[in-house]
């Protein structure tokens, strides 16, 4: 199971792009074995403070370990796949949720 947290600032085109790109890639490569939480730092600044978020969008891969961190609108699919190490997995489709969006 991939646990991904996506930190964005408001409903800007950049935020929308990052959300769209991340879902596209996960759908394609993780076939349901993932959970994405979208957090708007403008709405939850204390979470941004705790997670020491500087740039937005930022994706943190919480699981599998080790934690990985990626910034940007995720427009380069090749690099996102390699940076987050998104691999096709045979495990059944997991739950999806969207928070704070």
């Amino acid at each position: 199971m991939y646990i991904l947290k996506l930190y964005v600032t408001g409903h800007t085109p950049r935020s929308e792009r990052a959300i769209y790109n991340l879902y596209q890639l996960c759908d394609k490569y993780l076939t349901g074995n993932y959970q994405i939480t979208v957090i708007d730092v403008a709405e939850y600044p204390e979470i941004a403070e705790r997670e020491k978020i500087l740039a937005t969008p930022t994706v943190i891969r919480e699981l599998p370990l080790p934690r990985r961190r990626l910034v940007g609108d995720l427009s380069d699919a090749e690099r996102v796949i390699s940076a987050l190490d998104l691999k096709v997995s045979p495990v059944s489709r997991g739950a999806e949720s969207v928070e704070g969006d």
């Binding site: 600032t9 941004a48 740039a55 937005t56 940007g72």
Partner: peptide, 8 residues
Amino acid sequence: VGSYDFGG
């Protein structure tokens, strides 16, 4: 990867 800002 791609464009970003210092929104955080």
